[in-house]
Design a protein around this nucleic acid. Structure first.
Length: 639
RNA sequence: GCCGGAAUAGCUCAGUCGGUAGAGCGACUGAUUCGUAAUCAGUAGGUCCGCGGUUCGAUUCCGCGUUCCGGCACCA
């Protein structure tokens, strides 16, 4: 007797072992048709395998979240099958699912071309047509290793050999193709459907390690229906339209050029946006008790030797030699400079926590392949600050800094923020005891914050563990922005001390924190997040006064002065062009408000206010319009 | 840095099987005085990314380099 409990709580009795297929069929015909797998006591299983003991079972349908995941995984296998059929000399490696799709890494002498992708996709559709059953087999580990080695599949053999001894070696067979896989899978290739598409081919290191050989990775996307596939492809197109590199040019915010790889030329409008961000942060930090400073960008090599930067971060540093043959480094971080400021005069425990902030421009020689618009550059401004405090104050100060980050992101329109905790890296300074201490303090802060977080093992800074605050951009890419780092090493290395209650000199703890992180990156994220439609307080150009004919020129200039007098960033468009032409042009550059004035408005001292993207316009008195706009243009901190 | 791809007018792109290039938009000039996302006409604008090589001749073919794009690795 096997008792199966269904999600609704009902229990079904069977005389003996029952498969998911049979169970679904016993419930309804339509469910049997839609069923592709089962979840037995929380674990996904193949639908044709017998359930031999009492269990809670959920039928997984093709269009459910689990179902789509399986479908994508199968898609990867079918792709591998197609590749092996077309190019038998190829070795297969791994093929997992990812957001929106899947990939599979192959090893092959020749390169896959876009034409090859078309062929592979066509063959995949044939395999779906064949509707090959996909069946699980449990193999003896050594036999499996021999089998794959015999086929010349050295990567597969290596993976199998590395599976823990107590785990089953499960292989899945579909047609002639057999692959190692944890599973489960759909019952046959026909269940895959046709809503998939191969997207691109790219290089990827074997086991994700740059010391290993490079494989060829083919990316694909797969969905439960053509409708969803189409929606996804459309989303990609939309994302392309809001790409900050494109909008940066269209809105005349910035440019970059060959002579300065990874360096931004900010144009007047882009710099206005940048300054609006700084103005906001300056005020936010003032309210939180920070003092702003400014420290040198070029400092003698010896300081960077003392701090450990040259040893642990040197690959990323720009060095420069002066005519007197002294060697200086462009600062890649602001911390050593801030320690120098802290060290001036004698600090008492009563001075702690001591907050120093700087909008510091740092230079880092980043790998060329990492550069990406303003998101990943070699010269950027950090809203950096260092909090010098006692060990007892660490957790509280980390909590305060983290809360600032959440508040700020909310003001800029981001609610979905993820946190990663990065612990000690291989390349580090300081003893294990010190690291234990720093990591525990940071974890305590996370506890107090009561937020979800994930561990990012070995990704901490060389001087301390860190919290990383991550935002997702329009194309689904994650960007690390804010960070809070606990440092028990640099103050000692650089000789920073304070006099404690007992008269002893002690090294303070240093908390490094950046809230935007990089102003450049945050700015890029803002552009994409808003698709260039900035809220009024951030828009580089807030108001355009546009005339209908030159009858209104004098009045338009009067409106312009009045708008500027209220602090609005405004300009006038008096050109002899049709109003529809002007509206289009300023809409393309995403000016949020156009005040249209013609003869009628001039006579009545009104304006016709038109919002970006809006259909209608509102005629209101000049004063009322400017009052409303000036109010709306205030920063969130002034509300 | 690694794998693959690309680089032609300000932008988007076409083109030359080797004989020094073209469109649309934009810019400029003129006309048009017009009510909410493109008025009409004309003009100008190019080291075809750079350096070598092959060739009578290279923007085109080959090599090297630079930058960019998509990934990987790295990272704020």
């Amino acid at each position: 007797m096997v008792n199966i409990t269904l999600p609704d709580g009902s229990v079904r009795e069977f005389d003996g072992p029952v498969s998911g297929e049979e169970l679904a069929a016993s419930i309804s015909k339509s469910l049997a048709k839609a069923a592709v797998a089962v979840r037995v006591d929380g674990k996904l299983k193949d639908i044709y395998l017998p359930i031999e003991q009492d269990a809670t079972v959920e039928i997984v349908t093709r269009d459910s979240e689990d179902g789509v995941e399986l479908l994508r995984h199968d898609c990867a296998h079918v792709m591998a099958e197609a590749v092996k059929e077309l190019y038998p000399d190829t070795q297969v490696t791994i093929g997992p699912t990812i957001d929106n799709g899947f990939y599979y890494d192959f090893s092959r002498e020749e390169r896959f071309t876009p034409e090859d992708l078309e062929k592979i996709e066509a063959r995949m559709r044939e395999i779906v047509q064949r509707d090959e059953p996909i069946r699980r087999e449990v193999w003896d580990r050594n036999e499996a290793v021999e089998f794959f080695e015999g086929m010349g599949e050295k990567y597969k053999a290596e993976i199998i050999a590395s599976i823990p001894e107590d785990e089953e070696v499960g292989l899945y067979r579909q047609g002639e193709f057999i692959d190692l896989c944890r599973g489960p899978h759909l019952p046959s290739t026909g269940k895959l459907g046709t809503s998939f598409k191969l997207m691109s081919v790219a290089g990827a290191y074997w086991r994700g390690d740059s010391r290993n050989e490079m494989l060829q990775r083919i990316y694909g996307t797969a969905w439960a229906s053509d409708k969803e596939l189409k929606a996804y492809l459309q989303m990609l197109e939309e994302a392309e339209k809001r790409d900050h590199r494109r909008l940066g040019r269209e809105m005349d915010l910035f440019h970059m050029q060959e002579e300065g790889p990874g360096s931004v030329f900010w144009h007047p409008k882009g710099w206005t946006l940048f300054q609006a961000m700084i103005a906001y942060m300056r005020e936010k930090q003032r309210l939180a008790g920070y003092q702003e400073i400014n420290t040198p960008e070029v400092l003698d090599k010896s300081l960077w030797e003392k701090s450990g930067h040259l040893e642990k971060f040197g690959e990323n540093m720009y060095l420069t030699q002066t005519p007197d043959e002294r060697v200086f480094a462009l600062k890649p971080m602001n911390c050593p400079g801030h320690v120098q400021v802290f060290k001036q005069g004698i600090k008492s425990y009563r001075d702690l926590p001591y907050y120093l902030a700087e909008f510091g421009k740092v230079h880092r020689y980043e790998p060329s392949g990492a550069l990406h618009g303003v998101m990943r550059v070699r010269a950027f401004v950090q809203d950096d600050a260092h909090i010098f405090c006692t060990e007892a104050q660490i957790a509280e100060e980390c909590v305060k800094a983290s809360r600032l980050i959440y508040e700020i992101y909310r003001d800029f329109g981001f609610d979905d923020v993820r946190v990663k905790f990065s612990d000690r890296p291989e390349r580090r300074v300081g003893s294990d005891e010190v690291w234990d201490h720093a990591e525990n303090a940071l974890k305590e802060a996370l506890n107090q914050l009561q937020v979800e977080w994930t561990l990012n093992p070995g990704e901490g800074a060389f001087y301390g563990p860190k919290l990383e605050f991550v935002l997702r951009d329009a194309i689904g890419r994650d960007w690390q922005c804010g960070t809070v780092q606990v440092d028990l090493n640099l103050p000692e290395r650089l000789g920073a001390t304070y006099v404690d209650k007992d008269g002893e000199r002690r090294h303070p703890v240093m908390i490094h924190r950046a809230l935007f992180g990089s102003l450049e990156r945050f700015c890029g994220i803002l552009i994409e997040h808003y698709a260039g439609h900035f809220p009024l307080w951030l828009a580089p150009e807030q108001v355009i006064v546009a005339t209908i004919t030159d009858d209104a020129d004098d009045y338009a200039l009067e409106v312009l002065s009045a708008a500027r007098a209220r602090g609005l960033r405004a300009d006038a468009d008096l050109r002899n062009e049709k109003i529809s032409y002007k509206v289009r042009e300023h809409s393309v550059t995403k000016v949020p408000v156009i005040l249209v004035v013609g003869k009628r408005e001039a006579e009545e001292r009104t304006v016709a206010m038109r919002r970006l993207g809006g259909k209608a316009q509102e005629v209101m008195s000049l004063d009322a319009a400017l009052d409303a706009l000036a109010d709306e243009a205030r920063s969130p901190l002034a509300r």
